[in-house]
């Protein structure tokens, strides 16, 4: 039985039909270019996603703007340093939500190193200072 897939490599959005072969390979039709085959293979055999979320900061309010200014920043945006296996995303999110990041923090700081031996880190995506 074929599986239906929309290729998202470019805006054309080819509708792919994929059949799993006895040898484990995939037979792809409906693609207008070779990137469709690559996409189908990645998406069906080892799908990955970049995960972006926010983490709690220790001590609450933080701001990268005016010192002493009104500020309601209370979450630190973070993301995975690379795409992470899709089925493990809920586990990765749980680890991110369990973080309590102490300030200051700089963009690019590694908050979780090599999650579950995947080679993927969780990094801060914003610089936040401590507000006294």
């Amino acid at each position: 039985m074929s599986e239906e897939l929309i290729c998202i490599t470019c805006p054309l959005g080819c509708r792919l039909s994929v059949d799993r072969q006895p040898d484990g390979g995939l037979a792809v039709t409906g693609n207008r270019c070779p990137r469709g085959v690559k996409y189908a293979n990645e998406e069906l055999l080892a799908p990955r996603r970049v995960v972006s979320a926010t983490a709690a900061v220790e001590g609450g309010a933080a701001c990268s703007g005016n010192p002493g200014g009104l500020c309601a920043v209370s979450r630190l945006p973070v993301r995975s340093s690379a795409a992470y296996p899709k089925q493990g995303v809920p586990e990765l999110l749980e680890a991110i939500y369990a973080l309590r990041v102490s300030l200051p923090v700089s963009r690019g700081d590694v908050l979780i190193k090599d999650f579950k031996g995947s080679g993927v880190d969780v990094i801060a995506t914003r610089t936040l200072k401590r507000v006294e």
């Binding site: 972006s52 979320a53 926010t54 703007g65 005016n66 500020c71 945006p77 993301r79 995506t125 914003r126």
Partner: peptide, 27 residues
């Protein structure tokens, strides 16, 4: 209070492929 405009709340990936040649989050 900070520069950056709407980008600071767009924490998802996909910005900057043309400007920085890499996929970044909004912040």
């Amino acid at each position: 209070e900070a520069l950056g405009g709407i980008l600071t709340q767009c924490i998802h990936n996909g910005f900057g492929l043309i400007e920085f040649n890499e996929e970044l989050s909004g912040p």
